[in-house]
Design a protein around this nucleic acid. Structure first.
Lengths: 106, 106
DNA sequence: CTGATACTTAGCATCATGGCTAACCAATAT
DNA sequence: ATATTGGTTAGCCATGATGCTAAGTATCAG
């Protein structure tokens, strides 16, 4: 899983509908139909959103009978999380160094 | 800073150019020109990327003389980080409960 | 076997995004 | 005073994302 891949993950999270789906799936797996109900949106449109999430590796789906069930993948979330975390800490370390420098010859 | 706001942040990070700019700014502030050099891209185009990052709250810019300097905002990174972190932990807790349940009557 | 349910595929309209050039303004450097 | 540098604004074009409808497939219920 290279960093090259992360913009795709962020792109998947950049749409309000998909964002909401991710939040919903934190509570546990759900079928396409269950996920769709809150949204005033045609099914094919909604399904494409799910495919975007799947391609980004944020969800996994399995079809049993005629029902497709979706699950969040915590590894991908973890990957994004640690990238952001590292950058944030780098910036904060930067800031610390600056403050140290400024207070050096007070 | 509401959750409603996060898709905008993720959208800003979803473009490879902007993603790279963020990585670059972890090493410290830089001017528009300095940031641009690695990219084979017209200045106006590049500038629009910076504006997207700024609107998303990921960077701050100050113009002194004719040079505009850009800095990463760690608070925004932190906000995104903690959102992801919470979701990831929720999913993992879910998984744990499931495993506990499955092993209950072994 | 027939109808309903739960997706799925295909194809189209519209608008946002990301790229460009041309032309401009303001601050420096000569 | 003039030229150069660093950024900015305006406007155009191509592509891709998001929405739709219409029609199809596969399962499940009766």
């Amino acid at each position: 899983m290279a960093n090259q891949y992360l913009p795709t993950v962020f792109a998947a999270l950049s749409d309000p509908t998909r964002f909401a789906v991710v939040e919903r799936l934190c509570g546990g797996p759900a079928s396409v139909g269950q996920l769709q109900t809150p949204f005033a949106m045609a099914t094919p449109t909604f399904l494409r959103h799910l495919k975007v999430l799947e391609k980004a590796g944020l969800i996994e789906t399995i079809k049993r009978g005629r029902v497709r069930t979706c699950t969040l993948k915590s590894e991908t979330l973890g990957f994004a999380e640690s990238w952001i975390s590292q950058r944030r800490r780098a910036v904060e370390a930067q800031l610390d160094r600056l403050q140290t420098y400024l207070s050096e010859d007070t």
